[in-house]
């Protein structure tokens, strides 16, 4: 038995070693997002409404990293995306950046462009209409991390430009 012990230990180490590098929580988060929508491959318009930084936050699987990302919808309670919205983000030092939503309503700030110092305050504007975030983000770079759909006790709901008639 003694002769086999080093070999057994080596095999056990080889089997366990890679597991030490896997963040199971992160893996579960990525898998929970599901696959790509039909006809929309990876790119700036994919996966609207999902928490961008799960994949783009440095742990992969996406190589492109963001400091912030989210989706803006046209009208509260509706699913049409809002294109051309100015998303203004300010960090606690007063530094700010403005991103513009694309045809999917998505916007993002590349990590190599800005690394904000949390907390952050944000507002979205288009055509003279502005919605300001009434609280602030303390650490979450994915808007959908808090603004999930539907609204409920743990979510204020998706971000929108135009308020519905009956909130």
């Amino acid at each position: 038995m003694r002769g086999y012990l080093p070999s057994l230990l080596a095999v056990a180490a080889a089997a366990i070693g890679p597991l030490g590098c896997v963040d199971i929580v992160h893996t579960d988060q990525v898998q929970a997002l599901g696959g790509e929508a039909p006809g929309v491959g990876p790119g700036p318009t994919h996966r609207p409404g999902q928490p961008c930084l799960v994949c783009h936050g440095g742990q992969g699987p996406a190589s492109f990293q963001m400091s912030l990302g989210g989706t803006v919808y046209d009208t509260q309670g509706q699913s049409a995306p809002a294109e051309g919205v100015q998303v203004q983000i300010e960090d606690i030092t007063g530094a700010s950046v403005t991103a513009t939503t694309n045809s999917a309503g998505n916007f993002f700030v590349p990590l190599d462009q800005w690394q904000p110092k949390f907390p952050l305050l944000m507002q979205v504007s288009r055509g003279g209409v502005t919605q300001q975030m009434l609280t602030y983000s303390s650490r979450e770079g994915s808007c959908a991390g808090c603004h999930s759909n539907p609204s409920g006790p743990r979510s204020p709901g998706p971000i929108y430009v135009n308020a519905s008639q009956k909130p």
């Binding site: 009434l134 983000s137 303390s138 650490r139 409920g152 006790p153 743990r154 979510s155 204020p156």
Partner: peptide, 30 residues
């Protein structure tokens, strides 16, 4: 805030209109 202590996964949990609500019919809006 919902991304900090406004979560049930935290040891120190804070409830209120700026974050996590206690009633299932309330939303994070004051």
């Amino acid at each position: 805030s919902l991304d900090c202590h406004g979560q049930t996964s935290r040891n120190f949990r804070v409830w209120g209109c700026e974050g996590m609500r206690l009633s299932p019919t309330d939303v994070p809006q004051c």
